[in-house]
Amino acid sequence: AQAGVRQIGEIGEKSDEQRLAVFDLAGAPVAAEAVKPVSPADRYIYEYDWTPDSKGFVVTSALGNGDNNWWVATLDAVDA
Results as ranks from 00 to 15, higher is better:
1 A>D: 15
3 A>S: 15
3 A>N: 15
6 R>G: 06
6 R>T: 15
7 Q>W: 01
7 Q>T: 15
8 I>Y: 15
10 E>I: 04
11 I>H: 03
12 G>A: 06
14 K>I: 02
16 D>V: 13
19 R>T: 07
19 R>H: 09
21 A>H: 07
23 F>D: 01
23 F>H: 04
25 L>V: 12
25 L>C: 04
26 A>M: 05
26 A>D: 02
27 G>D: 11
29 P>M: 12
30 V>E: 12
30 V>M: 12
30 V>I: 15
31 A>E: 13
31 A>K: 15
31 A>S: 14
32 A>Y: 11
34 A>N: 15
35 V>Q: 07
36 K>D: 05
37 P>I: 11
38 V>Y: 00
39 S>Q: 05
39 S>N: 06
39 S>E: 03
41 A>I: 07
41 A>H: 06
42 D>A: 13
45 I>M: 09
46 Y>M: 10
47 E>D: 12
50 W>I: 02
50 W>R: 08
50 W>M: 08
51 T>C: 06
51 T>R: 10
52 P>W: 09
52 P>N: 12
53 D>N: 14
55 K>L: 08
57 F>R: 01
57 F>W: 06
58 V>S: 07
58 V>L: 10
59 V>M: 04
60 T>Q: 09
61 S>H: 04
61 S>R: 05
61 S>N: 08
63 L>T: 04
64 G>K: 00
64 G>L: 00
64 G>P: 00
64 G>Y: 00
66 G>E: 02
66 G>N: 06
66 G>A: 07
66 G>R: 03
67 D>T: 09
68 N>E: 09
69 N>S: 12
70 W>I: 08
77 A>I: 15
78 V>D: 00
80 A>P: 01
